[in-house]
Structure formats: C-alpha cells, structure tokens
C-alpha cells in the first residue's frame, strides 16, 4: 500500500465549536494557518447542535445573540484567514512523526501534520446515541449501524430504520432504492423532519415501497452478530419483524471519544493545562475551551476566547522559531489590518 503524504499546516484544531473558531482568528492574527476537524457536519459545536435558536446573554459586547448567530459571526471573523474545515470527520489518532511534528488521522482517512495541535473538543465528540436495548452491542458493526457511509453495504438487505427525525427519514428515502425491503419504526405518526422528506416517505408507504411501523423496538433477535429480526412494541401488543439491518437514529450525545487515547494526562475526562500557555502534558499540544481544566475554570465561551488568545502566543515559537512575536492591537496595527483585508478596498 502506498504511504499517504500528510497535508502540512501550521496548526490543527480538533473541534470547530465556538472556541476552536475563535482560535482561527487569534492564530490568524499571528499569521498562522489552521485546519479544523469536527465530527459534526457543520461548525458551531454545542452552540449549533444544542441551542442554535436560544439566546446567549454573556458574550462580552454582544448583549444578545443565538447560538447560530454567534457561530455565523465567528465564521465571518475568521474568514480572512481561510481556515480549512474537515467536517463529518472524527480525529481518531494523534501521534508524533519522524519530523517531530504532530500527525493527526481521521476516521475518514484524512492525514494532517503540524508543529502544533489545539484540542478544542468541548464536551467531546458528538456521537450517535446508542439505544439501551439488550445485547445491541453484539450486533454493532455487523447488523446495527448508527451512520451510513457506504450505501452499497446495504444493497439487497432487509432494513429497519428507527426514529422520527431528519436522519431517519432521509435514510429511509435514500436507501429504499438499494434495499430489498425497508421499514421505519417510530413511536408516533408525527415526524420532526423536513416536510419534503415526510411527504416523500408517506407516498412511498402508499405505493408499498416502504413500511411504517407505529411502535418502538423492544428486543433484538439473531445469532453471532447477525440480526434476524426485532420485537416491536406496538399499540396492540408485541410483534416480530424480520430484518437483517437496523439503523437507529435517536440524535447525538457527547462522548470524550478517541481523545482518551492520545496519551495526554486526563483529570475526570478533562485535560489539565497551565493558565499561562494552555499547554497539555505534551509539548506542542494545547487544550482550550470546555475540554480543559485548571483551578478556577469556568465552562463559558468567554473563558475559551481568552484561552485562545494566550494559547496562540504560546504556540507561535513552535511554528516560527526564528521570528520574533510582537504584541499588536488590531485597532492600530497596519500589519494586522492588512491581514484582515481591511486596507485592501
């Protein structure tokens, strides 16, 4: 197999929540380029995943903005520095390579290399919720999947999808053409999904191309990881439903994930750092935002912003060892303003 050459950059940021996004700006002011990786399909972390439409009142100077608005503004602020986003990818490995640089690998096969890695992983990776059905783990990866990466894998299968949101409906609609049979099990007749997908699903059931089961999954049946069917708890009792593939879509939950195996010191699932540099137990690896821990830590967005600024200055010498870092204000520095594209008009 051919060795893949990693893409080189100045800083790799693990997590594109508000703090990772602001780090792009602070590093950008120091003329450092960033790549960001997030398992979510869009930037914003908790702000866009958990409270996109809810107001935040404690961002300095912004009396009121929603999680989505804050994310949009952070993206706009970082835009002059052209950050590269790798969304829907999870960082699975962090190791030192032969150049003494850090190398990051994602579950999607992306390979990046940089002198500095910033872990801005917040409450951890947003990962699919695994329903607490007895023995479900015996079937994971063979018959039970929480995401679809390759539709072909499900060709000719008897597929059952569980849930009533966008993911559940989208996948019923998309997998219908490859499946032998496809069904959706949901606890009520109301779907919390885009009207278009709901209509498409309803017409598919009318045409007999997909089946709707009103109920919930109560038990799994099969052997050696191969599912043969499920027990559905429906209004008038339990029924057995054939299926060899089950795709549960019940939303996401935050889990520390692979960060636990990066070889960093951890304290109750948080990464201890010093409060001058926000560096971890490994040189060149920094941790900012909700994921870090130090005496007096407050899990607030504004704390993460402060940490991003100090981290950037501490990280600079690793990337530009021969350059002297000058402290400048955006208000008065023409260098910084040029970098921000302000004098270019």
């Amino acid at each position: 197999m051919m060795e893949k050459t990693p893409v080189r950059t100045d800083v790799i940021i693990v997590g594109a929540g508000p703090v990772g996004l602001f780090a792009v700006f602070e590093l950008g002011l120091l003329n450092l380029k960033c790549h960001l990786i997030d398992i979510l399909d869009r930037p914003g972390g908790q702000c866009t995943e958990l409270f996109p439409q809810k107001p935040i009142y404690d961002i300095p100077g912004i009396p009121n903005c929603t999680g989505q608005e804050l994310t949009d503004r952070l993206l706009e602020q970082g835009k002059p520095f052209n950050p590269v986003f790798h969304c829907s990818e999870m960082v699975t490995q962090l190791e030192k390579n032969s150049d003494d640089h850090w190398q990051v690998t994602t579950d999607y096969g992306t390979l990046l290399e940089a002198p500095v890695v910033v872990i801005a992983a917040g409450g951890g990776s947003f990962m699919p919720k695994k329903p607490p059905i007895k023995d479900i783990e015996d079937y994971e990866g063979t018959s039970v999947f929480y995401a679809v990466r390759d539709m072909d894998q499900f060709r000719g299968k008897n597929i059952l999808i569980a849930g009533g949101g966008d993911s559940a409906l989208d996948w019923v609609n998309n997998l219908q053409s490859v499946a032998k049979n496809i069904g959706l099990v949901h606890r009520r007749k109301v779907f919390r999904a885009a009207p278009d997908s709901v209509n498409k699903f309803i017409s598919m059931t009318d045409e007999g191309k997909a089946k709707f089961h009103l109920g919930q999954i109560a038990a799994l049946h099969g052997n050696n990881g191969q599912l043969e069917g499920v027990t559905l708890k429906c209004e008038d009792g339990e029924i057995f439903q054939d299926c060899d593939i089950l795709l549960p879509f019940f939303g996401l939950t935050m889990k520390l994930g692979p960060i636990a195996d990066f070889g960093l010191n951890l304290h109750e699932n948080l990464i201890p750092v010093d409060t001058a540099r926000f560096e971890t137990s490994q040189k060149g690896i920094f941790a900012i935002g909700d994921i870090n821990h130090y005496p007096g830590k407050l899990k607030l967005i504004l704390s993460g912003f402060h940490e991003a600024a100090l981290m950037s200055h501490a990280a600079f010498p690793y990337i530009k060892p021969d350059e002297k870092l000058r402290f400048q204000y955006t208000t008065s520095s023409s260098n910084l303003q040029n970098a921000l594209g302000i004098n270019k008009k």
């Binding site: 919720k129 607490p132 849930g163 009533g164 606890r187 009520r188 919390r192 019940f250 939303g251």
Partner: peptide, 11 residues
C-alpha cells in the same frame, strides 16, 4: 417537548 421525546428511548 413532544418532538424531543422522539429522541428518548422506550417512551
């Protein structure tokens, strides 16, 4: 709340 209960298990 009813919508969010869709994301719960064994409702």
């Amino acid at each position: 709340e009813l919508d969010m209960l869709d994301m719960a298990f064994d409702v």
